[in-house]
Write a protein that binds this DNA or RNA. Structure first.
Lengths: 236, 236
DNA sequence: ATATAAAATGACCGTTAGTCATAAAGTGAC
DNA sequence: GTCACTTTATGACTAACGGTCATTTTATAT
């Protein structure tokens, strides 16, 4: 039936309009200060209507996080479009992550919010949260794939279990990213400044460090020079 | 003046009583569900009194985070009491962190909350938040010290800048810790389970990985065997 | 034109963070 | 012990917000 289809589309569209509005308000004022009334006004809807599309304010914010993770995965997928060795892919995934967070700190903040929800049972009731979960899995899978490719093309030491290594790389990369984000937002600022730490080259240095561990002998030289080569042109 | 002193002590004591109560309530129900009234009742005080000791609910939660970071730093300091090489210290700091988070997930959650506050200006007005900042700096300094010790005793490659390396290790270790914590709390659970990833050996594997990068030739063998000694799981 | 279903509204309710006028307790002087 | 004064504690009160639901508006089918 055409009408059903159209209604479904319209519903999805309206959802997006609401998320747009929610982003505007929440990104500007923060989750706690943002009110449903204001979001409703921004979306040119009444407050009650929001609740026809989202269970509550929480779910609305999770929907924003989901949108962010869609974007991010989209970026990841592009990395694989080119013709790269496995170890290059690893580097690029991290770089992609990092620049995503730099360019979209508010989405990253939404990620953090989502991941800091302890009441996972509550989460599981939400379809949107399920999608977030799927997206996370997909992201991690990109890492696994990159490693597998690297083990095939001989750029990554194949003594590792790719899955296990992927989660290590993913977690630690995320740690680096979080630090970089916090610096950007103002946390740690004074401290990092006083210690004269260069956050800009944090990821590059991190890569060089782990590169020694995961790259094969042959790929290692390439890796290091690659790092030094990129260092000058990487930020921007 | 004796009375002034006593009053100061009493005020501090009352603060602690309130934090005790807040921990009980907030750890049980989560920040959002916890109410000031309930915390007041738990502390056997009236609601208004809480506000004589803490600016608002937020600051109360930050006070909890501060207490947690006091504990954590206390643990870190103990690591340096024994007679260890630099590279051993690095390992131990991470292990300390990890087991702290395992044993005190609620404090870690408070850390996350604190660090996800974007309005850093608002934070700077709070004396408690300042102390949190100091504690973070102290924690990072432990890492720096461990590296310096390692460079002295020849267990850590002294081509690195200890500060820069410290922040890398700190950030990535924190990423690993966060992942481990999330698994514990239920996030990622299904995914990690399906991928048959062993979170228990995550840190050990991570150490082995970076160990190759930071340890000197001589220390490396020690490092790896040490790892195998401590953990039954080894790569495929 | 009418009946029915779907979508939207906003007044309303319960709850809670935070305030403040008032009360109680503590202190010091005499 | 009493009085004047300061510090600390109280809880009723307010404003604001998340979320609900009876009612209205709009769309669809007959």
């Amino acid at each position: 039936m055409g009408i059903e289809e159209r209604k479904k589309r319209e519903r999805q569209h309206r959802k997006n309009v609401i998320i747009d509005a929610a982003e505007k308000v929440i990104f500007a004022k923060g989750i706690e200060q943002a009110t449903m009334k204001e979001i409703a006004e921004e979306a040119e809807l009444s407050k009650g209507t929001l609740y026809l599309y989202f269970k509550n304010k929480n779910e609305l914010y999770i929907a924003i996080a989901k949108r962010g993770s869609d974007y991010l995965n989209d970026q990841f997928s592009k990395v694989f479009a080119g013709d790269h060795t496995g170890i290059e892919l690893i580097r690029m995934i991290g770089e992609t992550y990092l620049s995503f967070v730099r360019e979209n700190p508010d989405y990253f903040h939404a990620f953090q919010y989502y991941e800091s929800i302890n009441d996972v049972k509550e989460l599981q009731k939400s379809e949107i949260a399920e999608t977030c979960e799927t997206n996370r899995r997909e992201a991690l899978n990109y890492m696994v794939r990159a490693l597998q490719i690297g083990m095939q093309d001989g750029t990554i030491d194949d003594n590792y279990d790719p899955k296990q290594l992927a989660i290590i790389l993913w977690s630690s990369t995320r740690g680096i990213t979080t630090m970089s984000h916090m610096k950007e937002v103002g946390h740690y600022f004074k401290m990092l400044d006083e210690m004269e730490i260069k956050v800009e080259s944090l990821y590059e240095d991190f890569l060089r460090l782990i590169g020694v561990g995961i790259a094969t002998e042959e790929a290692r030289k390439e890796w290091v020079t690659d790092g030094q080569k990129n260092e000058t042109s990487v930020d921007g």
